[in-house]
Design a protein around this nucleic acid. Structure first.
Lengths: 332, 332
DNA sequence: TTGAAAGCGCTAACAG
DNA sequence: CTGTTAGCGCTTTCAA
């Protein structure tokens, strides 16, 4: 028996089963061992409540069956849905997922990435906090990385959305519903996702011969308070917009909150959101939504990462997924 | 230099700096080392991009600065908000948090708990999947556990809500607003949190001399679809309720969705929710909400856990936090 | 098929 | 203050 407050080791099991530690190890790793010894070992392990020490195994093997998923906002349902996708395929393959919240801060992100290599994690899926994310240490250590939601260089695998198309589709929908002065509340300008969606908005206006008014494009944060602040600004304009494209789900929530508070519930002001409105209690017919395949992105990223972990060595790929329009059915 | 695709070790650094491995270790662990050697070691470490191998450290120390937070639904903002609280306290204290999603399944939960001990995590904060959660292995291994949201036995630290009071307050508010036939959509009956809130509802009715109609109390899941399904059932009743108390935030969302779809937006049917409505776009004045201090629960739990990790040995405590009423201001 | 033995990278006595 | 040394628990040659 091992001392109290301590876990049993393969040595304890080996002694109890009358075999060598190596044999115990083999039993737990599927190597060939005679039936009788397998039985003896399993019995002893059961008695002693033996669980293999993953730390020791990891140290010895120089790798562990855990992958890290680093996201910028754990409170955003878009990312938790993505996490579900990652988790499902990972656990299917015997991997655990640890979720790390970078809080959109480069520094926190860097800390987690460092931990990922120092803990011998097999790989990381990264929704980057910015375009300056530093993955050099990871790749230097031979750890595969898959970028998700935002790409981080041509030489890194990625799973992204067709953001430009999503921005354009949302905007066009509003135009076709008869709105003419359409604002866009975008995420942070330096984030690719935000910039691309804004570009889609710009192009949609141009395609339809609508004038571009720079006061109608505003970069903000990808959070509710960002959406709120900008919506207030827009309403305070001498000539406020008659519709708005929200750059992500949370911005959409913030914008709708402010509109509601001003008695301008959609569709009296048109609203299109890039991303699904989380837990919405609105009638689906009043707001146009471009649903993003968050779960699917997670699934895809996890699959790619597992392939790389398995030794796949082809050149970096970027998978582009598309959003799905769900148009409002009532106009103003 | 270490071989390519491999990380530098303290031996590499020691050699480069002309000191012993122990000295390198000391530099990275704050033990006293002469200034010149510190400088030499830091320099060498920088050159070699040395990062201490956490796996080895953990194996040697038999403990790691990571704590696990096991929650039943990573997509519920209540739990992610709690996670934020945990994370803030933990990272302040130099701990990392890994988030594990048990999906409300005992089996998945058990797997994560097993991983927690096998990975030498310092402790776990557990929002239990059920009242049968098995933490014996953890405590046997001397790992502290703090229950959060739901208690799991008198001998385990816990942070819970005054659920009975919350249920009662929500119900009383509806009664005082003039509603008389008040239903309750509760979470799973076997979950303490749900049972207690239901109890509060029951008592509020009794206190105000309202008849108890068993068809108005329905246990469900703590999810949106649960709230939806039960709300539909309630509306199909020969004599439907004129108000409803939702057992948690997601149930509230589901119930309001269904009411909206039936053209019964609150306050035409009264709604009180135990828990904050996540990302709501409703006017705050139409729905009564008992705000739960999710973040604060996380903070408290993390502090308690860190104390235990630090060796605190007092008898198990349970901290009870209170919700905060935010009454609807418009009645029917 | 099995056992002995050598580490994985680090820390913590123990000397000096 | 610093170096030597012995493991933490496991996997994996290498022989038998």
């Amino acid at each position: 028996m091992p001392p109290k407050g301590t876990m049993a080791t393969i040595y304890d099991v080996a002694r109890a089963a009358g075999v060598s530690p190596a044999t115990v190890s083999r039993v737990f790793n599927g190597a060939s061992v005679s039936d009788e010894k397998v039985a003896a070992v399993r019995h002893a392990a059961g008695q002693l409540k033996f669980t293999p020490n993953r730390t020791a195994r990891t140290l010895r093997r120089q790798s562990s069956e855990v992958i890290a998923l680093v996201i910028p906002d754990i409170e955003n349902p878009y990312f938790t849905e993505m996490a579900r996708g990652v988790e499902d395929v990972a656990s299917e393959a015997g991997y655990s997922v640890v979720l790390c919240n970078s809080d959109a801060q480069l520094e926190k992100e860097a800390t987690y990435l460092r931990i990922a290599v120092a803990e011998h994690m097999s790989g990381v899926i990264l929704a980057a906090a910015s375009d300056h994310s530093e993955i050099a240490e990871l790749t230097a250590a031979g750890r595969p990385v898959v970028a998700v939601d935002r790409s981080i260089g041509d030489d890194v695998d990625g799973v992204v959305m067709a953001n430009r198309d999503a921005g354009r589709a949302a905007t066009v929908n509003l135009i076709e519903a008869g709105y003419r002065r359409i604002a866009h509340i975008a995420g942070p300008e330096h984030i690719e996702t935000a910039a691309d969606r804004a570009d889609g908005w710009r192009r949609a206006l141009a395609d339809h011969g609508l004038a571009y008014d720079s006061s109608l494009l505003r970069f903000s944060t990808f959070r509710v308070d960002g959406g709120r602040a900008v919506m207030e600004e827009l309403l305070a304009l001498p000539e406020p917009p008659d519709a708005v494209v929200a750059g992500n789900n949370l911005i959409g929530v913030g914008a709708i909150q402010v509109l509601t508070e001003h008695g301008l519930t959609p569709p009296s002001v048109g609203v299109a959101v890039i991303g699904s409105l989380p837990f919405t209690t609105l009638s689906p017919s009043v707001v146009t939504v471009v649903r993003l395949p968050a779960r699917h992105m997670g699934v895809t990223a996890a699959r790619m990462l597992l392939e790389r972990i398995g030794g796949d060595d082809q050149p970096a790929r970027t998978v582009v997924l598309r959003g799905e329009m769900q148009a409002a059915s009532v106009a103003r």
